[in-house]
């Protein structure tokens, strides 16, 4: 049991680590100074949640793995994050849309997780739910501004939707480990978030003059450790110090 919960939490932790890492790549290079403050804010929230999730998963496993062992010392196939969160930043429209897709899922997820029978998870959720509300607002406002801004921004926003919408179905994947945790009332069922997610996206897209596309071929694989080509490059940067200087304290 605790192994399943640990695995499910690691997958969730991976989503937060990888998206936080991607956002942090913007730091110092944002389109305006205000965004050089906002994107790190969101990245800090996500990375903080990743630390909590990994630390707790490590305790549940009981094999002595720390947050850093989990974050830095696994091979690519062992990371179970959604493909969506590992997609490269692209332009600012891509980054904000990716953030909105993820936050619109995580908000009802954390909301539901506050009822978890596991008090530690309920505690993480209570903190995260406040943070994620800001992510939806911030990213949602940008999607609207860019979608209904200039001709160029509308074109870029549409392009981002074309590029990223194909990864959104994976948000609702239920792995075997998750199914066991859902059954026991420890974690929410991602499938149960679908209606609210669709609703949030539809509302924002409506204001942003965007159309929710039909997806013929959804892309998935991250939950099973099958990643996109960009992921290895992300890991080579993330893990550089730990790999080049093994077994040292920092």
């Amino acid at each position: 049991m605790s192994k399943s919960l640990a695995n499910a939490l690691i997958a969730l932790g991976d989503d937060h680590l990888i998206l936080g890492h991607r956002l942090s790549e913007w730091c110092g290079h944002a389109p305006m100074l205000e965004e050089d403050l906002s994107m790190p804010n969101m990245a800090l929230d996500l990375l903080g949640q990743a630390r909590n999730l990994y630390t707790y998963a490590g305790e549940l496993e009981g094999e002595g793995r720390t947050e850093d062992d989990l974050a830095y010392l696994r091979k690519d196939r062992e990371y179970k994050n959604l493909l969506l969160v590992e997609r490269p930043n692209g332009d600012f429209a891509h980054t904000m849309l990716r953030q909105l897709y993820f936050a619109a899922f995580m908000q009802p997820y954390w909301q539901a997780a506050m009822q978890s029978k596991d008090a530690t998870i309920a505690g993480f959720a209570a903190k995260a739910v406040k943070e994620i509300a800001y992510h939806i607002r911030h990213a949602g406002e940008w999607v609207v501004r860019l979608g209904d801004g200039t001709e160029e921004s509308a074109r870029r926003m549409k392009h981002a939707v074309d590029a990223l919408h194909i990864y959104t179905d994976e948000l609702f994947t239920v792995t075997d480990d998750m199914a066991i945790c859902i059954e026991r009332g420890l974690l929410p069922d991602p499938q149960a978030m679908r209606a609210e997610w669709q609703n949030t996206i539809a509302q924002i897209f409506d204001e942003a003059l965007l159309t929710v596309p039909e997806v013929a071929f959804p892309q998935e694989g991250g939950r099973d450790g099958r990643h996109t080509e960009d992921f290895g490059h992300l890991l080579s940067e993330l893990q550089y110090m730990q790999r080049a200087y093994p077994d040292m304290a920092w």
């Binding site: 730091c27 110092g28 990245a43 800090l44 110090m241 200087y245 040292m248």
Partner: peptide, 24 residues
């Protein structure tokens, strides 16, 4: 900022990101 994506631990990564954000 050159080291945010390569910081050697999660604790250091958060501290560095927060610091660079403070500078902004």
């Amino acid at each position: 900022g050159n080291w945010i994506t390569r910081a050697p631990s999660l604790r250091r990564k958060l501290a560095l990101l927060a610091k660079v954000q403070d500078e902004g």
